[in-house]
C-alpha cells in the first residue's frame, strides 16, 4: 500500500533531482560534488523503492531500501570527510 508521505518524498526528491540536473553547471564549483550527488541519487532510489515496496516484493525491496539509506549515508560521510577534513588539511 502506497502512503501519502512516501509520494510527497518522491515528488520532492524528483523535484530536487530535476533541480540538480538543471543546475549541474553551478554545482561543478562544489568540491567532490559527484560524491554528494551520488549520495542523493541513492537516497532518491530509496524513495522510489519505498513506493515500489507497497506494490510488490515488499520484503526484498524494503531491504534494498535500507541498503540504499545506508549507502547514501556512507557516501554523505565520505563527502563530508573529503570536503571538510582532507580539503581543509590540504
Amino acid at each position: 500500500m502506497i502512503e501519502i508521505n512516501e509520494v510527497i518524498m518522491f515528488i520532492v526528491g524528483a523535484g530536487l533531482f530535476l533541480f540538480i540536473r538543471l543546475n549541474a553547471h553551478y554545482l561543478t564549483g562544489i568540491p567532490h560534488i559527484k560524491i554528494l550527488t551520488i549520495s542523493f541519487y541513492i537516497l532518491f532510489t530509496a524513495f522510489i523503492l519505498t513506493i515500489l515496496e507497497g506494490l510488490f516484493l515488499e520484503d526484498i525491496i524494503n531491504f534494498l531500501e535500507h541498503i540504499c539509506y545506508a549507502l547514501s549515508s556512507i557516501f554523505l560521510l565520505i563527502w563530508c570527510y573529503a570536503v571538510l577534513i582532507r580539503k581543509s588539511v590540504s
Binding site: 531491504f63 556512507i74 563530508c80 577534513i85
Partner: peptide, 20 residues
C-alpha cells in the same frame, strides 16, 4: 539485518554531523 543496516546509517550520519 535491516536494523543493523540502519544502525550503520545512523552512525554514518552522526559521524558526518560531528565533522560538520
Amino acid at each position: 539485518a535491516i536494523a543493523v543496516i540502519d544502525a550503520v546509517s545512523i552512525l554514518a550520519f552522526l559521524a558526518a554531523l560531528v565533522i560538520v
